[in-house]
Design a protein around this nucleic acid. Structure first.
Lengths: 120, 120
DNA sequence: TGACAAAAGGCAGATATCTTCCTATTCTTC
DNA sequence: GAAGAATAGGAAGATATCTGCCTTTTGTCA
């Protein structure tokens, strides 16, 4: 889609919002599937159809430094009998980019103020 | 389907055959996906449509002692970046049951003599 | 022989991540 | 303003196992 540099796509905004939201609620680490569920439960459901889209967005955010990730301990995943998760967390740059993006277009429903935004 | 006791279903015969086949070829341990591929590549392709069916059959064979299984080391799976495998191997009882089953209906295509059968 | 019960098969989906290929959209440059 | 390039989105499938629900088949018993 060739975006303007320094811009966040709606899906990326949603990811960062969810990540910060979860951090405020005491869970600073999130994985792809969790975010997928969170987004599905919000009003931005339409933003996420295919999972591939989400993982690509996570990759992008990571490459641009707005997210960082670590793989879950394989033993924990094994113990719980499921595939390994990749845990992401929003970086300081991620928070800044989100704030900037929200300021740029403040009146849009999908980019409204979020709980815990004061903490940014 | 309510089968006669001591009988093997075509899918179960295929699993045991594949398992022994692989063992003869030097790979005594197999996992569900591998068997699925093997069966797909054989003429018994129609025996396996859904994966759930295969895993149920593997469970049955294990419960009746014809197969045994061990989970792959989670660290190995993690290193190779894929979900953990469950490795099965055909037990002596499994070999015996297969031989008995092949003797019972010797002229059927899906239950023909297999390479390495002399080793049973 | 007919009815019932038991078990197998199929479909779908959960769990989790990632890749490839194609399409659609947007930005930039001329 | 139009053309071209870049990139996001969507569909599908690979990797691996397992569960639940419903349908179909088959053996057994009356």
């Amino acid at each position: 889609m060739r975006r303007k540099k320094g811009t966040l796509l709606p899906l990326e905004v949603s990811i960062l919002q969810c990540g910060i939201d979860l951090a405020v609620r005491g869970a600073p680490l999130f994985h792809g599937f969790l975010i997928a569920k969170e987004i599905r439960d919000r009003e931005d459901a339409k933003l996420l159809t295919a999972h591939g889209t989400l993982y690509k967005a996570l990759d992008r955010l990571q490459k641009s430094g707005l997210l960082e990730s670590d793989w879950e301990d394989p033993l924990v995943a094994a113990q719980e009998g499921r595939p390994r998760r990749r845990f992401y967390h929003v970086t300081a740059a991620g928070k800044a980019a989100l704030v900037k993006s929200l300021e740029a277009v403040p009146a849009q429903a999908s980019q409204r103020r979020i709980p815990g935004m004061a903490a940014l």
